[in-house]
Design a binder for these strands. Sequence first.
RNA 1: GCUGGCAUGGCGCAAUGGGUAGCGCACCGCUCUUGUAAAGCGGGGGUUGCGGGUUCGAGUCCCGCUGCCAGCUCCA
Length: 663
Amino acid sequence: MSSLTATIDGVERELAPGTTGADLFGERRDVVVMRVDGALWDLAREVPAGASVDAVTVSEPDGLMVLRHSTAHVLAQAVQAVNPDAKLGVGPPIENGFYYDFDVETPFTPEDLKALEKAMQRIVKEGQAFVRREVTRDEALAELAHEPFKCELLTQDTAGAEGASVEIGDGDITIYDNVRRGGEVAWKDLCRGPHVPSTRVLQNGWSLMRSAAAYWKGSEKNPQLQRVYGTAWPSKEELTAYKERLAEAERRDHRKLGAEMDLFSFPDEIGSGLAVFHPKGGVIRMEMEEYSRRRHIEEGYEFVYTPHATKAQLFQTSGHLDWYADGMYPPMQMDEERDAAGNITKQGQDYYLKPMNCPMHNLIFGARGRSYRELPLRLFEFGTVYRNEKSGVVHGLTRARGFTQDDAHIYCTREQMKDELTTTLEFVLGLLKDYGLEDFYLELSTRNPEKSVGSDEIWEEATATLREVGLASGLELVPDPGGAAFYGPKISVQARDAIGRTWQMSTIQLDFNLPERFELEYTASDGSRQRPVMIHRALFGSIERFFAILTEHYAGQFPVWLAPVQVRAIPVAEPFNDYLGELVARLRAAGVRAELDASDERFPKKIRTASKEKIPFVLIAGGDDADANAVSFRYRDGSQDNQVPLDEAVARIVEAVTTKAQV
RNA sequence: GCUGGCAUGGCGCAAUGGGUAGCGCACCGCUCUUGUAAAGCGGGGGUUGCGGGUUCGAGUCCCGCUGCCAGCUCCA
């Protein structure tokens, strides 16, 4: 018998014909599939001659995806075991887990999920093998005639459809049989694979999370299926760690902290997505805005103010009413007059709440003749806008219906454009760092042909310029095809927070379009009239949203300069009230938000209260401190610094505020 | 907007299969008060998101609205 050669984990080896991945890697329990010339294969398949084969473990991203997808199959088998009428949608792996969509008569309840987990445990215990079988399209259609969604995937061009690539790859059509130890086929599914060798590999590292409706193929126009979400990990320990991360995110949730710390609320009386800031949240917001203002002055911005409402014509001119009327609050009709019979005697006027500030800034630019000497002209405003977000998407401060942008529009010449974008990006990153965010990457959103205006040349120039500037920053630049606004491409700054989540922060958008629509012009040095280029940029995006992100980033433990109460002075007993009262007065004179707890509560209770309020500096004084003309510091983590001389204590606190220190 | 779930004093929760709303924290008062996350006693506060309906009787059942939560779709 002849043999074949293959490269196994980088080493060229002679193999007997028919050698499978299982033969090669079967000993290693963490190996779930193999990579054959770059493609992922089931371990049960035979290694082809001349191939380069590597083991893929469950701990690496590809292996984990296989594990998660295999878990989705076990879920689907369990669902059809419990409910044979359930029709299968798709079941791809996703970040942290997987889902599978089903067409069922009645949606899943939490009790259903528990029952499904039980059924899944049985399947895992049975140690069913995942067996790959190549079929023709006609065979697959015949075998899966009772699965309408699978048939649709088989017969339609599925390019781009959500999750569909899991079912059908580029190559052969395959069906995976789940085979019990006795050889009996327990279940089967149309699937590209690959899979883990046995359901046993899943162990107890998975869990069902929730169920929800999802549109078939991700389109609002299609019927909704019932989706079951699960999570899957290589081990029980990693599953537990993941659940702990979720719990941590919940503890940091700004909606929860906002109520607990008395920062803001959403009164039902005002309406969905419209926040009010309470005094403590107000302090944080004021500090955020104050610092931003100062930096904008230093960067050469000029400050403008514009109203919240406008006649319809303005947004007709800008094009927003054509593109985004649905996202705007409905118009308010003004000034219409009727006679007794109800006939209109005076034509009215529609007014809208503004969903953006740019058209108003354009009017300021156009209010008089502009010279090239004024450019770049940078107009800044904390502009409050209103957007009629769909009821299901409103989410705390991160997705509100009324919010305030730290919005600016820069008008410049084409020649200035690149430098201006570069300094703007530097400004953005520097400012975000001052607020405590450190870890960034960039996203370049390019044109969506279905939703855009302007010529190809203009889009290409704008996109190329943004790309150059982005690459020059040295940060990772991730493409986001089709993600641009209708008037121009954008770069957005993504920031990672303290627990590793990424948030879209600042956006810088290039716009050749609105200057055209508003017929903006400046006089060039040669006396000719030229059209300026416009840069839209927001650093926080929305103050409310940035507020939420900082709250979650810091888990409510704001750095001193932002903390609503910076110092709480707590006497060990009443006789020391005056002693600490004087210190508090000194701190206040130095601009520190300090207060004395002179209440009738006992000492331990006061410590507890200050701790729950997450106050950065708790100053304690009793006999020992007073004798030494000193005070004791207690920090949020419970650590302590005793008997610090009063002068030093004041200096230390003032410095923590001015340096934006976290303590 | 769609699917599902939820809605009880400021907050967190309780109220057997429909029978006239309880608890903790917070709040107010009194007593106490010398070293690190809750002193003791007493008190006030809700008609159960809003509007209809079923019933002798509804926080508990039904319908509509509002709001919230999760996911989907969307996010200039």
